[in-house]
Design a protein around this nucleic acid. Structure first.
Lengths: 112, 112
DNA sequence: CAGCATCCTGTGCGATACTG
DNA sequence: CAGTATCGCACAGGATGCTG
């Protein structure tokens, strides 16, 4: 996805990267989930995000890792244990989307 | 796109709809642009959002209309003139994503 | 000017089966 | 448990050309 800079007053470019991330179906959900739980393991996330496939989860986690929004810690145990948690940047992001989430909830309520 | 409710504490369901909207590549950009300009015409948007195709813009505008985030006013003139602007809900949305936009800008700056 | 109609491609993402 | 490996499809969205 490419978003060019505009010739106009406001520059929308910085939005480019978040959008690519956010536009992934489960991204916000994962971040929110981690925001509520401190640390979660792969299958924890599989349960919380009902309906996600292991592949999609793996893909997303990798992307969020690359973006520096989450961290991964693997323990050399048997059975293996891996924990995911938000980085500081991820926490900031989590707070940044709070108004959005609240707006969504509010809107949701008004419609019922 | 389907997002089931989870069995867990937090309900992520209200996020479902915004995500479907937000996940459209140009949605946030259009809203932001309209948030900065009061009223914009089709070609104004085409210019501000450099790179968008008329088809994509049309599609998105329709969707945002359906979502009730923007309004459309057509003037019976020749050549035709059509103006788009945010609804109250759209303005609220615009404010709701402000922290996100700012987070993105900030992050963008730190990286250079 | 403000679009609609078509065609076409990339890829997000789901389903399923398998592994260290 | 925490993934990987395949397969397949729906759909976002780009390019181009046409119209009231």
């Amino acid at each position: 996805m490419t978003i060019k800079k505009n010739s106009n007053g406001i520059c929308l470019c910085p939005l480019k990267e978040i959008i690519t991330t956010i536009s992934k179906k489960w991204a916000i959900l994962i971040i929110s989930a981690l925001g509520h739980h401190d640390r979660l393991r792969f299958n924890d996330l599989m349960n919380i995000l009902e309906g996600i496939s292991p592949k999609s989860l793996t893909d997303l986690l990798k992307e969020l890792l690359n973006e520096g929004l989450i961290n991964r810690e693997a323990f050399s145990e048997i059975p293996p244990r891996v924990e995911y948690f938000l980085t500081d940047e991820g926490k900031q992001f989590c707070e940044a989307i709070l108004p959005l989430v609240q707006w969504a909830e509010n809107r949701d309520n008004l419609r019922r």
